[in-house]
């Protein structure tokens, strides 16, 4: 149980914010000798470990680098310096439904989004009933997703994501949406994950929620950790 599943060693993430997205802006800037990119430090020399089965909350004000940590764990970004090592299947709940296509039906989107999250066709076939049950969308499953209300959309997206059987679940503020009933359902599911020994990384502004739900809290401020271990 005590093996680190996620390990950050002296991780620094700098963005070079490109201030010029087009040639029209870029060329004059180059000629005038202006700087063509601005540096922005999102994470400054951060080290921590998350052990298998832990539920860790990450809190901090806007722009303190919380989401960057999740993106580094998800493998979407790579650190500027330092190392990030992750062992296990990651399921990101970061802004749900990113891979949905509005013209396609709910059913088609389940398969599409499942594949994006790394599920095989067979795994989706097996889980399809349970996904739609969880989302409670049998009536609308063959409707195009563009006709869905935002609540329905979230429900479907969350239902797919929790069926990935992740070893690491990344949760980013998503529970602020959806009706209270569905939120209850999500927390119930997340508690089940906890019992099953899934590692959960939970990002939120809501300190009381994080304290209640997580074993441990990492506090960020100005790209640094406030409570180094």
């Amino acid at each position: 149980m005590a093996t680190p599943i996620v390990k950050f060693t002296n991780v620094t993430k700098r963005f070079s914010l490109q201030s010029h997205k087009t040639f029209k802006e870029f060329l004059p800037a180059l000629i005038k000798g202006e700087e063509t990119s601005k540096q922005f430090i999102a994470l400054n020399n951060i080290s921590f470990e998350i052990l298998t089965g832990e539920t860790v909350g990450i809190i901090g004000p806007n722009g303190s680098g919380k989401s960057t940590i999740l993106k580094l764990i998800a493998g979407v970004m790579s650190p500027t310096s330092g190392t990030v090592s992750v062992h296990g299947r990651v399921s990101p709940l970061i802004e749900l439904g990113a891979g949905f296509h509005f013209e396609l039906s709910g059913r088609e989107n389940v398969y599409l989004n499942g594949a994006i999250l790394g599920l095989s066709q067979k795994e989706i076939d097996q889980n399809f009933k349970s996904i739609v049950d969880f989302a409670d969308l049998w009536e609308y499953i063959d409707q195009p997703v563009k006709r869905y209300s935002s609540g329905m959309y979230m429900r479907l997206a969350f239902a797919i994501a929790v069926h990935v059987h992740p070893q690491i679940l990344l949760v980013d503020e998503i529970l602020a949406v959806g009706d209270p009933e569905f939120q209850q359902k999500c927390f119930k599911r997340m508690n089940e994950f906890k019992k099953e020994g899934v590692t959960i990384v939970f990002v939120s502004h809501d300190l009381s929620l994080v304290r209640k739900f997580c074993d441990r809290v990492i506090e960020l401020n100005h790209s640094r950790m406030i409570n180094p271990q």
């Binding site: 599409l112 594949a115 994006i116 066709q121 195009p144």
Partner: peptide, 20 residues
């Protein structure tokens, strides 16, 4: 390794383009 995703993505483009 990711071929299923590839086919899903192709399906998405092909289906979506002419659905409407």
């Amino acid at each position: 390794k990711w071929h299923e995703l590839l086919w899903q993505m192709v399906g998405r483009e092909v289906k979506a383009r002419y659905k409407q």
